[in-house]
Amino acid sequence: MAPLLELKDVHTYYGAVHALRGVSLKVEEGEIVTLIGSNGAGKTTTLRTISGLERARSGSIKLKGKSIEKAEAHEIVRLGVGHSPEGRRVFSRMSVRENLEMGAFLRKSGPDVQKDFKKVFELFPRLKERESQAAGTMSGGEQQMLAIGRALMAQPKILLLDEPSMGLAPILVEQIFDIITEINSRGTAVLLVEQNAMMALGIAKRGYILQIGEVTLEDSCDKLAKNPKVREAYLGV
C-alpha cells in the first residue's frame, strides 16, 4: 500500500536560492515522523512545499499515491493535509471561535463541525475559556494551541506541525507535546518539524535529519537518539 505521504527527490528554490536539494521522505498512516535540522536547513520549506505554499521545481509529492506537487494550496487542504505554520499565523483580529471556524472553511457547517469544536475544546480547554477573545491578544502558547486546533478543524489525515515549541515556556512545551501524542493516538498522522530535537525524538517513531536542504540521515527515533553524531549536533550532549 502506498504511504500516506511520500516525497521523492523534491527540489525547491527561493528565487536563485536552492533551498531543498532533493528531499525524500515518507510518513505512514498513523505515524509521528519528525524532521530535525538546524536553522536554514530547509525544514519549513519542506512543509511549505508539501502544502503548496511553495512550488517544487522537480520531484514528486504523493498523498496516498496521488500526485499533489502541482496542486494549489487550497486544494491540498481539501485532500487532507493540515498545516500549523511557523510563527502560528493565527488571524489576530478575529476571535478564537472565528479562527476555528476558518479552520473548517471547506466543510459544511453542521453537527459534524460542532462535534469537532467540542473535540478541539477538549484538547485545549484554554481555548474554550478564550472563545470570544481576539486571537492577537493571547499569549504565544495559547496562539500555538489555536493554530493546531484550527488545523484540526479541517479533519486532516496528516498534520504538518512547524516548530510548535517555539518561544514557549518548558512546562507548556511538555503540554503541547502531550497533546500532539493525543492527536496522533486519535488517528491523525503527524509530520513534526522541531528545533527541540530531544522532545521531538521522544514522541516520534521515525526521524529524518535535514542538512542544507538534504536528508543526511533517517532512522527510528530510538536509534537517532543514540547516534553520537546526532547527540553532538542536535541534542547538545
Binding site: A73, F91, F105, A151
Partner: peptide, 11 residues
C-alpha cells in the same frame, strides 16, 4: 490579514 494562513484554510 494573512494570505498564506488563509490558503492553508482552503481559501
Amino acid at each position: 490579514m494573512d494570505r498564506d494562513a488563509s490558503s492553508l484554510m482552503g481559501v
